[in-house]
């Protein structure tokens, strides 16, 4: 029996998540096999709909790599993201989807190791949850 390989969509802020992903790649760190990276100019660019659409379109889990709070280049992008992720989680609860399928992680440009650790932990967590029943 093949092991469930969860699909993860990772939105990455170009000020933090993207450089962290590039560092992880440079260091040749282990990354999930079924990963789709979506670079965004700022995590505040991510609308609630993007998060739901990712789940609707086949993701088993969605993560957002954003800058630390009070460290947003555009001042409040990551704060706006927090509100939108909260709203998406409310909608997911109504659908009956587990909250763990959507999560924000704050990283810095040099967080290559943390970046991969988070993703590999997310793979384990999603394996326990099983496939997204709403995709």
């Amino acid at each position: 029996m093949s092991i469930f390989d969860p699909k993860i969509v990772a939105f990455c802020c170009e000020q933090s998540g993207v450089p962290a992903a590039e560092m992880a790649k440079t260091l040749k760190l282990k990354m999930p096999d079924n990963l789709e990276l979506v670079p965004v100019p700022c995590s505040g660019r991510i609308e609630t709909l993007y998060l739901l659409k990712a789940l609707e379109s086949g993701a088993d889990g969605v993560v957002v790599f954003a800058c630390y709070e009070e460290n947003c280049r555009y001042l409040q992008g990551n704060i706006r993201l927090k509100g939108r992720v909260g709203y998406a989680k409310q909608i997911m609860a109504k659908i009956g989807l587990e909250s763990e399928r959507l999560e924000i992680f704050h990283v810095a440009t040099n967080s290559g190791v943390k970046f991969t650790e988070i993703l590999m932990q997310k793979v384990d967590q999603l394996r326990q949850l099983g496939p997204n029943p709403a995709k």
Binding site: L49, K53, L55, K135
Partner: peptide
């Protein structure tokens, strides 16, 4: 338009589930 799209997405997922 945005709120309608959100509701539509949520309804599609709920019905698939």
């Amino acid at each position: 338009e945005k709120d309608g799209a959100l509701l539509a997405s949520a309804l599609r997922m709920a019905r698939r589930k």
